[in-house]
Amino acid sequence: MSDFFNTYGSLIVFMVLNALLALSLYLPLMAGQLSLASPGFFALGGYIAAIMSTKVFHVEAGAYPLGYVLIEMLLAALASGVLALIVGIPSLRLRGIYLALATIAFIEIVRVLSLTLEITGGAVGIFGIPQPFGTPLGYLWLALPLLIVAALAIWRLERVRVGRAFNAIRADELAAGAMGINTTYHKVLAFTLGAILAGIVGVVYAHVLNTWNARQGTFEAGVAYLTYVLIGGSRTVVGPIVGGLALTALPEVLRSLGGESLPTWLNNFLNSGQSIIYGTLIVLSTTFFPQGLITPRLLRFWRRTRASNDQ
């Protein structure tokens, strides 16, 4: 069993963190806004962690204090929040595809800047990020509470006034505006909350990876998070979480499936065809399961069957 946790410790942590990233994309989607900006804020959070932990806080020996990690998370949340307002307000005044386009522009600009600036270490990036935990699995102490808090907060959010406003905007933005909902305010709010979450996850990720560079938080990464949400489900908070967990594990499963008993072509396909499978899943799910696999109706259905079984 200890072998198991040693082998898959990092993978489990990545699964939880990717579920969080899926949530960061789910938040704007709650208000009907397609944003691919999460990777940009994620990269920003990572750089804040990397710079603070290697250049500002000097920890000579032993484990890196958790308190410092929390300070980094706070800073990342602040920075991401402010930046999200700057990016969000102009593009969210508009309806439709503009936010998606603005966010693509945003992540590309972040990428160019992190390659060019002195403080981000250029192409090599920043390395030797200190570790608060002795084993990769230790990061669950950070990641799991974060996931639980985020999930509960979003679950709650869906049931209060703000969440209902999100829902109304998603259903019909014009109608929502006519009903007196301040659509721009709510859209910016949803976008900013997602950005803050992505920034915080970036901090944890940078410590897990030991290093941070401009290859983190690309357009492709944004597409991957989007896949988590769409396949898991974009109408309930459970969906992105399941999507993030399962699709992060999927490559490893495919890889271990590719044993010696399978024909070579299939083996090759399982090895290098993961992205093809991802793409196919995206296309199929948008067509056949536009709300993703886990839908509110399905959750209600499960609850009902469980209730009737209990009786």
Partner: peptide, 13 residues
Amino acid sequence: LLSVVSSLGVAVI
């Protein structure tokens, strides 16, 4: 928006 996403999927494929 779903069409946009679906075309992203095709691009990935």
